[in-house]
Simulated assay, not measured.
Amino acid sequence: MAVRAAGALCWRSRRGELQLLVIHRPRYDDWSWPKGKLDDGETLPEAAVREVAEEVGIRIKLGIPLPSIQYKVNSGMKEVLYWAAHVDEQEPLPDDHEVDQAEWVSPDKARELLSNPSDIDPLNALVEAFEEGHLPTWPIILLRHAKAKPRSSWTLAEGDRTLVASGQRQAKAVGRLLNAWGPKRALTSPWVRCVQTLKPYAKIANPKIKQIDALTEASHKRQPKKARAVAEGVFEKRKPVIICTHRPVLPTLLEVFAPKMSDEDAAKLPTSDPYLSPGEIIILHVSALDNQRIVSVEQVKPFDD
């Protein structure tokens, strides 16, 4: 089994020209992208954000996913997953331990400096997205609530059904994971299990949370068009957003998103019940320049108990 690691290609635009952040590691005397292995219990997106912060002192929000790379190391094979990450005003501060230099360079200069030939693959994908105008993006994060108490053993109102202990742990993991994108806006079903799922993230990021009846199971069963309208409305706001809802509502929302992406990306969407596991998320990146086009799709499970 390959060792898994994660990192990011930090980018910025200066006078219309793309610049990338490359780092020099004295231990290996090489040039690469900021990256590192996962800590225990950590997801790949979390690791990418943490490694950039530790190595160059920049707090990033993840953009589109980029091609992963594989190469041989002493212990076998290593796989590194990368994301694009827009950096505006922050300047790198190398940690002087793992990294002693960090420089903003052009794509051509990056190709000259990078020591590992496979690191060119995510660079090429990022440059292509930049040239197509789809590198600046904002995320829609579709979240199924964490694991709740069984419906069969619940005797109170359905909307009051709470998370089980493992669901509460899932919710904490969801909170940490969502921070990799850091949306400041969340739309949620007002039913307790959805509100509880977002609570840990609310403590971390203090987003503006709006409870919407159309995202409940009961409202969706009566009037699914209202749930569709919620999904369609997020494109008008043009702001990063979380949508937290229930399993039966998911296919209706996915029907709104699928036509806004390529056939290749649409094929990545789940098509059968239960669509997402409890606490699982789908991240859809919308082009900032073409607000009706979704340019990437990811699916991440933060915690399974």
Rank of each mutant, 00 (worst) to 15 (best):
M1Y: 13
R4D: 13
A6V: 07
G7S: 04
L9Q: 08
R12P: 08
E17D: 11
Q19I: 13
Y28L: 14
V49E: 06
V49S: 06
R50L: 07
E51S: 03
E54P: 07
E55H: 12
V56W: 05
I58E: 05
R59C: 10
I60V: 11
I60A: 03
I69Q: 00
Q70A: 11
N74D: 15
G76C: 09
W83R: 00
A84L: 06
H86M: 06
P92D: 08
P94M: 06
E98H: 12
P107L: 00
E112L: 04
S115D: 03
S118Y: 12
I120R: 13
A125K: 10
A125F: 10
V127R: 03
E128D: 08
E128Y: 10
A129C: 03
A129R: 06
T137V: 06
L143A: 02
L143W: 05
H145C: 01
A146Y: 00
A148S: 02
K149E: 11
R151Q: 06
S153C: 04
L156A: 08
Q168M: 13
P183A: 14
K184M: 14
S189Y: 05
T197M: 08
K199C: 11
I204G: 00
I209V: 12
Q211Y: 14
Q211V: 08
E217K: 10
Q223I: 13
A227K: 04
R228C: 09
V230Q: 05
G233M: 15
V234L: 12
F235A: 05
V241D: 01
I242Y: 00
I243H: 02
I243R: 01
C244S: 02
P248Q: 06
T252I: 11
V256A: 03
A267C: 08
S272K: 10
E280D: 13
I282Y: 06
Q299H: 09
